[in-house]
Structures are given as structure tokens and as C-alpha cells.
Write a protein that binds this DNA or RNA. Structure first.
Lengths: 210, 210
DNA sequence: CGCGGGGTAGACAGGTTCGTCTACTGGTGG
DNA sequence: CCACCAGTAGACGAACCTGTCTACCCCGCG
């Protein structure tokens, strides 16, 4: 049941004789369970009691680390951000050194995400759907999307795109669309479609149809 | 407070001396309130009690028309579908008789939607984020998206696109992306970006750069 | 006049949710 | 050996949610 949806971040390597167990493995258990349940069921649908039960920890311990559900949600979003950003970067780098190729390659991360079973769309988009627009949760989502777009814009600039800003916007649009369509259309081709559309736009903007 | 987010469907014109008030105006009041609250707050966040209170009707009346909350949600989604589809078609037709131009023009509906204040993204995407994947609610979302894509594919075929299917997929992707980014990026340009990207893809596929 | 349909007002039951709080336990360092 | 810390187990309160049910009211039709 320690799933992580197939994604693992090294939990601060337990070496060094555990100097008083600095951040407790309990916190990690909670976060792991929250990651799974929040994503699978939604922020509101996943209750504290369930998370506590499935974490195999006690209520007091939970509230020690996360004074309120909101804190846990925020921590969950931080983890999603770290993982998803990591996958995006990895996919881009796997496409070689050319920034234009990287911009296309990054869409492979989308494809892998859609293939994973239990896929339920973008955690951030889902979170935003459940939170009012003034909220910290909503803010975290906006920040994440902005960061991704900024990174893309950097690549677009390196690639010598005509309008890096505009290209980055378009690609981020297609990425979000792909993330959404993956669930909605029930269409396994969504990721491929996104990649193709992106490639076309990139080629047109960079000016190298090859 | 009878808002409808600026969108109105003629409620079966009250002429003909109200033949026993066939579908009661109470039902309409409930639906109108639900439309507003479900969209603004989310499906789970908007409680039955609140909807009843703000509708100005009684609990018994509510449960007479909608035996369960789910029924109301489904009715809400039906209404959203009717309205959004209507706006999409209207925007397309406003672009003139040329199907390729219509495919671009339809993105004006996205622009108007994003501009409306209280805009909180695509009601269907939001609904899907709050419902498990076996659900009727989720199914309604999938059906809606499929219908929109099918309609686009028809236009693409008429326009003589090289691969109508592929083009429709791409455009539907961009539309969804635009709907999502409108809230997430806090970017008022999202709609314009989507339109431009769509235009570029259409031109490439139809082969008339003009 | 009186009946019945459409409506109101609101109490109530049963379940769930978040968060607090008390009481207990087991291991480790000084 | 004892104090302390991380943790367990779970009762509890208050709010809130959905859905049912009783009691009443008003108005048009026969």
C-alpha cells in the first residue's frame, strides 16, 4: 500500500544513527497517504479520519505535524509540484541538448502521466476546482503554473523562438489541455495529440521545420 | 440575485394562462440558484440547505422536484451543456459561412467566458475533479466533451482539413487548455493565445494560410 | 362550500467532518 | 532510575450535511 503512484522521493536517508529522528517517519507516512487519497478522491472527499486511519498513525500525531487540514493540503501540493516539475525536466533533458527538441520532449512526461493507472488529471487543476480564488490552495496552483510557464519560456528563448513569451503560453495551454483531456475524453491519444500540436507550433516559431 | 451569470434560457414562456403551471416556477428557481452556487463554490461545497435557503423555497418542494442532490447536479450539468454549446455555436456562426473561419471564431466564446467575472473555469472539468470516474456526473462530463469534439470534427471535415479527426482533437485540447488557464494563470491573454494557436493549426491543416 | 394541489416552515434523525483533549506506553539519554 | 519525548488509542463536542416527515396555509375548481 506504500504506493506514491509509482513516484518516490528519497525520504532523507535514515543513516547517521537517527539523530533524534529529526523529522519523524510519521510525518512521511501521513504525507504519503495524503498524496494518494487527495489525488484519488479529491481534497474534500478525502477526510482527515480516513487519512489518519490509512496512515496507521494516531490522531494526536497527525495534529502535531499538521495543525489543520489546510496545512496538509499545502504540503501535498508542494510534493506534487516537486514531483511533476522533476518529471517535466527529466523528460525534456532526455530529448537531448537542443532546447527546441526539449520543448517537444517534455510532452513525454504528459504521456507517461496519462498512462499511469489511477490517472485523474492535473492535481493542481483539480485542487483549484475545489478551492475559492482567494485561498492559499488556489494561490499555490497559480504559482505552480506560472513557474512551469516561465521555465518553458526560458527554453523557448534559448531555442531562438520568434516570440518566446507567446510560444510558452501556447505550449502551457496545450499541456494543461492534455492534462485535462486525458481524463475527460477517456482518450489515450490525447497526449500524442498534444505532443504533435506542440511540435507543430514550435517548428513554426523556431523556423526549423526539421 | 437572479443572476444566471448573464446567461438566460427562456423558461418556457409563461403565456397560455398557465395550464396548472406545468413545470412549476419553483423548479426553475432551484435550478437557477444551483447553477450559481455549484459553479461559484463547487459541487460539494454548495450544500442543499444553502441552495434551498437562497432559492426562497421550502425543503419539501425541493425534494419533490429533485429526489436527491445528484439529480440536481445532473440537471445543472445539462443546463451548463445547453448554454455553453449554444455560445460555442453562436460564436462559430458569427464568424460567417466559411467552416474554417467558424473553427477559429468559436474561440471567441472562450474569450467572452474568461472575461465574465466570477469566471471559475469549465464547469465540467471542475465537476469531473470532484467526482469519481464511474459516476453519472463524471459520465456527463465525458459525454459533453465528446459532443463538442464531434461537432468540431464536422466543421473540420467541411473545411476540408487534411485530418479532420486529428485537427478536432487538437482544437478541443486547446479549448480545454484555454478554459483551464483562464483561471490558473490569472492570465487574461489566455483566450487570445488559444485562438491564435488554433488559427495556426487550422491554417496548416486546411492549407489556406489566408 | 369543501377538496386537493402546490406551496411554506421547520423539527428531527443519522451520519460525517474537523479538531481537542485525556490517559496511557515504550524507548533513550543524562 | 527517572524524565522526557514520540507515539498510541479513542472519547468527545460542535458543526454541518442529506434526507424524511409532520403540520399548516392559500387558492382555484367543481
Amino acid at each position: 500500500m506504500s504506493v506514491y503512484h509509482g513516484l518516490m522521493t528519497t525520504p532523507a536517508a535514515s543513516a547517521e544513527r537517527a539523530v533524534r529522528t529529526p523529522a519523524g517517519p510519521a510525518k512521511e507516512k501521513i504525507l504519503a497517504t495524503a498524496f494518494r487519497l487527495f489525488y484519488a478522491q479529491g481534497l474534500r472527499a478525502a477526510g482527515i479520519d480516513t487519512i489518519i486511519a490509512e496512515s496507521g498513525i494516531s490522531k494526536a500525531t497527525f495534529y502535531k505535524y499538521f495543525p489543520a487540514k489546510d496545512e496538509l493540503i499545502l504540503a501535498y501540493l508542494d510534493r506534487v509540484d516537486a514531483i511533476w516539475t522533476g518529471q517535466l525536466h527529466a523528460a525534456a533533458e532526455a530529448a537531448g541538448p537542443d532546447p527546441a527538441a526539449q520543448l517537444v520532449g517534455l510532452f513525454d512526461a504528459l504521456a507517461s502521466a496519462c498512462r499511469r493507472d489511477g490517472y485523474r488529471g492535473c492535481a493542481f487543476i483539480n485542487a483549484a476546482a475545489e478551492s475559492a480564488s482567494g485561498t492559499r490552495v488556489h494561490g499555490r496552483t497559480v504559482a505552480h503554473k506560472r513557474a512551469v510557464r516561465a521555465w518553458m519560456q526560458g527554453l523557448a528563448t534559448e531555442a531562438g523562438a520568434a516570440h518566446p513569451d507567446r510560444l510558452a503560453r501556447s505550449l502551457s495551454l496545450i499541456l494543461d489541455g492534455g492534462l485535462a483531456s486525458g481524463v475527460l475524453d477517456g482518450d489515450p491519444e490525447a497526449a500524442k495529440t498534444a505532443r504533435d500540436a506542440a511540435a507543430q507550433l514550435i517548428a513554426a516559431s523556431v523556423g526549423t521545420p526539421e
